[in-house]
C-alpha cells in the first residue's frame, strides 16, 4: 500500500512557565492512502497534539516540534515547511474536523461563506462558483434545503448539523488526508452514529485517508482498519483492528478494552484503570504505564521497552513481550463480542 503520511520520531514540547511539558515523545505511525487509522488513548495521551502538529497548528511559543522529528506527507517533510507553505497544505491537502461543533464555527459569518473561503483560496474559484460548490457540499453532507441554509448563520443549526457543516468545510477542497479529532465526542449517541455513517460514506466517495482521534473504542471498531494506541505521549501498541481487539498485547490496551462497557455481559460496575496518566512535565524514565500496570516488573520503571514485532502489522512496546519475561495471559474482561457501537 502507498504511504501518504509517515510520522517519524515526533517530539512536541510545550515550554510552560518553569516546566517543559513533553506532550508527544517519539511518536511513529504511518497512514496509507484511503485507509482509516484510529489513534486511541485517554485524555492527555498526546493524541490531539499529534494531530495539531501534522496540521502545523502548534502555537510557537510555547509549543516546539523538536529537531529530529519528521512528518512526511507524500515524502515531503512538513516540519521544515514555512508558514506560507503550510497554508497551501492546510485545507487543501490535509484537513481537520474538530471536537466541538458548537464552537468550531465563526458565529458572525454565514455558513456558506465559511465553506467558500477555502475554495476561493485554494482553488481560485469565483465567488459564484464557490457558492455553488458550497451548496453542493451541504447537500453531500446531508443538510436539507442547502440553497436556503447556505445563507444562514451557525446558531440556526443544531449540533449535529453544525458538525456536518464542519465536515463540509474540511472536505471542500478534496483533501488527501482528513484528521478527525474526536468528531463525535460532543454529540449525542444517535447523532454520533449518523456522523460516523456520513464520514464512512464520504470516504468511499472521495478516497480520503482518515486519521480518527478518539477515546471511544466503539467508534474505532466501526470506522478504522488500523489502530495506534497512545499513552503518555507515546504509541504503545499498533496493529490492524482485529489484532488490537482480539489479540492485544499491551497491558494498557487490555485496560482500555476492559473498561469498555459490554452490551451482553452482566456487569455490576464499569471497570476502570486505576491511577492517572503520568506527569509529562517530568515523564517517567521507563514505560509510562508502569505505575498503573498490574503486571509491572522492576525493569518497567527504569527502561522504556523497544517495540516487539508481533506480525507484519502489529507491534507493541512492552517488557512482557521480552522472551525473558513471565508469560501473562490477558484478563478475561477484555472479551470483545457483538456490536460495540452504541
Amino acid at each position: 500500500m502507498d504511504k501518504i503520511l509517515e510520522v517519524k520520531d515526533l517530539n512536541v514540547i510545550f515550554h510552560i512557565f518553569k516546566a517543559d511539558v513533553q506532550a508527544v515523545r517519539g511518536v511513529n505511525f504511518e497512514l496509507n492512502k484511503g485507509e482509516t487509522l484510529a489513534i486511541v488513548g485517554e485524555s492527555g495521551s498526546g493524541k490531539s497534539v499529534t494531530s495539531k502538529a501534522i496540521m502545523g497548528l502548534i502555537p510557537n511559543p510555547p509549543g516546539e516540534i523538536t529537531k529530529g522529528s519528521s512528518i512526511l506527507f507524500e515524502g515531503k517533510d512538513l516540519v521544515n515547511y514555512t508558514e506560507k507553505q503550510m497554508e497551501k497544505v492546510r485545507g487543501k491537502e490535509i484537513s481537520m474536523i474538530f471536537q466541538d461543533p458548537m464552537t468550531a464555527l465563526n458565529p458572525t459569518m454565514k455558513i456558506g461563506k465559511q465553506i467558500m473561503e477555502g475554495l476561493v483560496k485554494h482553488q481560485g474559484m469565483s465567488k459564484q462558483d464557490a457558492r455553488n460548490r458550497a451548496i453542493e457540499l451541504l447537500k453531500l453532507v446531508g443538510i436539507p434545503k442547502p440553497e436556503q441554509r447556505v445563507d444562514e448563520y451557525p446558531h440556526q443549526f443544531s449540533g449535529g448539523m453544525r458538525q456536518r457543516v464542519v465536515i463540509a468545510i474540511a472536505l471542500a477542497c478534496n483533501p488527501k488526508i482528513l484528521i478527525a479529532d474526536e468528531p463525535t465526542t460532543a454529540l449525542d449517541v444517535t447523532i454520533q452514529a449518523q456522523i460516523l455513517d456520513l464520514m464512512r460514506d464520504l470516504q468511499k466517495k472521495t478516497g480520503t485517508a482518515i486519521v480518527l482521534i478518539t477515546h471511544d473504542l466503539g467508534v474505532v471498531a466501526n470506522m478504522a482498519q488500523r489502530v495506534a494506541v497512545m499513552y503518555g505521549g507515546k504509541v504503545v501498541e499498533t496493529g490492524l483492528i482485529d489484532e488490537i481487539f482480539y489479540n492485544p498485547k499491551h497491558p494498557y490496551t487490555w485496560g482500555l478494552l476492559s473498561s469498555m462497557p459490554k452490551l451482553h455481559a452482566k456487569m455490576d460496575k464499569l471497570l476502570a484503570i486505576p491511577g492517572s496518566p503520568p506527569d509529562l512535565a517530568d515523564p517517567p524514565k521507563g514505560c509510562p504505564f508502569a505505575a498503573r500496570c498490574p503486571y509491572a516488573m522492576k525493569v518497567c520503571t527504569n527502561h522504556m521497552p523497544e517495540y516487539t514485532e508481533l506480525s507484519a502489522t502489529q507491534k507493541a512496546a512492552c517488557w512482557l513481550l521480552d522472551e525473558r519475561a513471565p508469560k501473562v495471559a490477558p484478563p478475561e474482561t477484555i472479551g470483545v463480542g457483538g456490536n460495540q457501537n452504541g
Partner: peptide, 14 residues
C-alpha cells in the same frame, strides 16, 4: 476560540 483554529485549518493566511 475554536473557530480561529478552524479558520487556520482551512489554510487561510494569518
Amino acid at each position: 476560540q475554536d473557530y480561529i483554529v478552524t479558520a487556520q485549518a482551512k489554510g487561510l493566511s494569518r
